[in-house]
């Protein structure tokens, strides 16, 4: 079953279409990636799914139901979480308070605290810094916090927007290990990345986006060996 399905999704800023009718499926339990160069429309797509941009209701189906144009705070309750580009941590709140906001919609205190333990075991660094304001964390730690915070809502579908952006290679590796661990826990993931190789290596399916359109899609393994993808996104000439 497809947890998420985009059908001819169009998103415009004013009169300018940034996403021009794309189809995309994320089957339940899988990790799917959406890659493409800067300005292709990836962030716009994720924002539309998360309810931050107005779109036609039918263009986005989640658990079979049309959610296009629903408001973001309602979608969180239905198990959809977005880790935004640039992380979006609350800089003046402490690490613990940021994580508490991730669990804002939940009232099952016992399960919340066990999820908090889970997040701290994924990211021990966050446990050490729980009383510190999030603005004082390094970029990598902020990314951990942003992911941890999203996990605190117990999402069924996790949308990740360029989690590796601006991070040192070691930190990128750590973040990707966590993404795989989260996927293994059964969370469905739609991953947006500019680091195409890494994204395709961890995904089951991949989509390639160019100027608002999906130009290629298929099993991630095949995309990794596709000559066009290799030339354009993996920095390899034939």
């Amino acid at each position: 079953m497809n947890l998420l399905e985009l059908t001819r999704l169009e998103v415009a800023y004013g009169g300018i279409k940034a996403v021009r009718g794309i189809n995309l499926k994320v089957p339940e339990g899988e990790l799917v990636c959406l890659i493409g160069t800067n300005g292709a429309g990836k962030t716009t797509t994720l924002k539309a799914i998360a309810g931050l941009l107005p779109v036609a209701a039918d263009a986005i189906r989640y658990e079979g139901a049309p959610i296009g144009g629903a408001r973001s705070f309602e979608l969180v309750r239905r198990g959809l979480a977005l880790v935004p580009e640039g992380r979006g941590v609350f800089g003046q709140l402490t690490v613990a308070e940021n994580l508490a906001m991730g669990a804002y919609v939940r009232s099952d205190a016992a399960a919340v605290s066990s999820d908090l333990e889970r997040v701290f075991s994924l990211f021990p660094r966050l446990a050490e810094r729980r009383g510190q304001s999030a603005g004082t964390l390094s970029g990598g730690e902020q990314q951990m916090l942003a992911i941890g915070r999203a996990l605190m809502s117990r999402p069924k579908l996790l949308l990740l927007d360029e989690p590796s952006m601006g991070l040192a290679p070691l930190m990128v590796q750590k973040i990707f290990e966590t993404i795989l661990a989260v996927a293994k826990d059964g969370v469905t993931i739609l991953l947006v990345e500019q680091n195409a190789r890494l994204a395709l290596e961890v995904s089951s399916h991949g989509y390639v986006m160019e100027t608002g359109l999906i130009t290629l899609s298929g099993p991630a393994r095949e995309l990794l060996t596709d000559p066009k993808v290799r030339a354009a996104y993996l920095g390899e000439a034939d």
Binding site: L52, S72, F73, V76, E97
Partner: peptide, 24 residues
């Protein structure tokens, strides 16, 4: 309180607060 933290979160970044499920 949770409500108070949500107020501060909203004042810092209402869009991300919405992504937390906060009805701003």
């Amino acid at each position: 309180t949770k409500l108070g933290i949500a107020m501060r979160a909203t004042s810092q970044n209402p869009q991300v607060a919405g992504l937390m499920g906060i009805d701003i």
